[in-house]
């Protein structure tokens, strides 16, 4: 009967260990590292989070979209500082979410909060098409990543025009991970590529390779270097546990899904200086 006892006790114990232990282990390794978010009151400031509308990974048929925390983390970091936050996407309407990115074991507390928040979920379901965004209406334009972004951020003339206009109005432009692709097609006021000669970061080619998603059409590191940006990044044995944030004037970029808390915080610090 001993084997039965081991099974009855051991199996649930193992399940519990994995269920509770894996998210903590991933966090300890570097996933979504903790960051001391500054306590700021930015009432009256408005942020727009821009995401992909693309929901399929190439011809594989696999679902993709925005990586949950890259949207939910800045959403609540801004909201908790009393900012107004809207959510837009390239096409508008329901935003596709990378499967499992908002679930166990990857979910952040902000992902769980987002899913239980009818207001946030409503904005996800009825996102504003970027074509209907007035660049004057927001102080911050924050572009979230996820693999879907590789298909439509850099390719969208509308987004390029919006970011170009927003930059001309000296708004804060920000991104994490594949969201950086939203910066590559925009122009500076002199017509040159917006990020030419600017210090920026985004998801590295190495992380893309390690995750086996080279099938995606645009890789942020490659594209940013292509238009003359000074690309920076941190590295790690497993690249998805690295993080880096760069502030260059009005452009604040984060390396990958780990960089959301710090990127949003650095954006708020700039906003607070201009209050």
């Amino acid at each position: 009967m001993n084997w039965l006892t081991y099974l009855l006790v051991g199996a649930p114990a193992s399940v519990a260990l994995i269920y509770f232990g894996l998210p903590r282990s991933l966090h300890a390794l570097g996933l979504h590292p903790s960051y001391a978010i500054p306590a700021l009151d930015l009432r009256g400031k408005r942020a727009l989070i821009i995401t992909t509308s693309h929901d399929t990974l190439g011809k594989t048929g696999k679902r993709t979209g925005v990586f949950g925390s890259e949207m939910s983390v800045p959403y609540y970091v801004f909201l908790d500082a009393n900012m107004e936050v809207d959510i837009a996407s390239i096409q508008g309407g329901e935003i596709p979410v990378e499967p499992y990115s908002m679930g166990w074991p990857l979910a952040t507390p902000e992902d769980r909060r987002f899913k239980a928040d009818p207001i946030a979920m409503s904005k996800l379901k009825d996102s504003i098409p970027v074509a209907r965004i007035n660049p004057d209406d927001y102080d911050v334009f924050f572009m979230a990543g996820g693999w879907g972004a590789a298909y439509d951020l850099a390719q969208s003339d509308t987004l390029a025009e919006l970011i170009t206009q927003a930059n001309a109005n000296n708004k804060i432009l920000s991104s994490v991970c594949h969201g950086a692709l939203g910066l590559v097609s925009a122009k500076a006021e002199d017509g040159s590529p917006l990020i030419a000669g600017r210090r920026v970061t985004g998801v590295t080619d190495r992380q893309i390779k390690q995750l086996g998603i080279e099938v995606t059409p645009k890789h942020p590191e490659t594209e940013m270097r292509k238009v003359g940006a000074n690309f920076e990044a941190n590295t790690s044995t497993i690249e998805m546990f690295a993080t880096h944030v760069v502030v260059d004037g009005n452009i604040v970029t984060g390396q990958n899904q780990n960089s959301g808390y710090e990127t949003a915080s650095r954006v708020m610090e700039i906003l607070a200086k201009h209050l």
């Binding site: 809207d86 207001i119 409503s122 009825d126 209907r132």
Partner: peptide, 8 residues
């Protein structure tokens, strides 16, 4: 959606 989000 822009009106919805503004009211939300």
């Amino acid at each position: 959606p822009e009106i919805l989000q503004a009211l939300l």
